[in-house]
Amino acid sequence: MGKAFKKAEALSDRPTHYCPGCTHGVIHRMVGEVIDELGIRGKTVGVAPVGCSVLAHEYFEFDFMEAAHGRAPAVATGIKRVRPDLNVFTYQGDGDLASIGTAEIIHAANRGEKITAVFVNNAIYGMTGGQMAPTTMPGQRTTTSPFGRNVHDVGMPMRVSELLSALETPAYIAREAVIKPKYIMKAKRAIKKAFQYQMEGKCFSLVELVSICPTNWGMTPQNSVKWAEEILLLYYKPGEYKLPEEM
């Protein structure tokens, strides 16, 4: 009997540091599998962010660069501009991409950089210990919104996929979730599409992945999945927000 399953070559054997119940592992695996399926491991350069996935480069088996907080799209731009033959992606959380890195992601998207952003949205800062993010839901308790996010004080959560879809430059923008198997298969298809568009030289691509953070949400993984499905997915609706126009 042949092998039914093997780990993607694009993934390393190092054990991850992620908390129990965290979805980063699922996303790493999807990215690794897509890179294997497309046969692009040797021409891929990943850009790691600051946040929980700051050590992402330890869990993949191809070239990587670290970026400062929020600057991954600028680093990816520099790589891709001088080496357009490479496959370049950023892996960023919502504190990194939607707060400190808004300028970099908006302008990379608006210039139509031929890069892919894998955007992990779990509605909170994880690495620094559970602070409020621009994506934190109204009323959601975090260490810096201990009485719940007050939208009269700090506004409504930011919907990155919708925001970027307002730009004219052709792009592939999709939001999926990684909280249950039925969402995960769709999410992987979106990631694959994003990388394929990049390989075809078509456009900037971003896949937002609604995720859970049981540790900083203060919930069990089961309750986290329930809350994400009942609260997050109503506000952060899955779907393809922008498809590249025929050019």
Partner: peptide, 26 residues
């Protein structure tokens, strides 16, 4: 060579990092 006007000097510094990191003269 490649010319690019970035959105800020903050971003430009990291474009330099990315391009220099893949070994090109920048």
């Amino acid at each position: 060579g490649v010319f690019l006007q970035g959105e800020s000097e903050v971003a430009v510094g990291y474009m330099v990092l990315g391009a220099a990191g893949c070994g090109e003269r920048v």
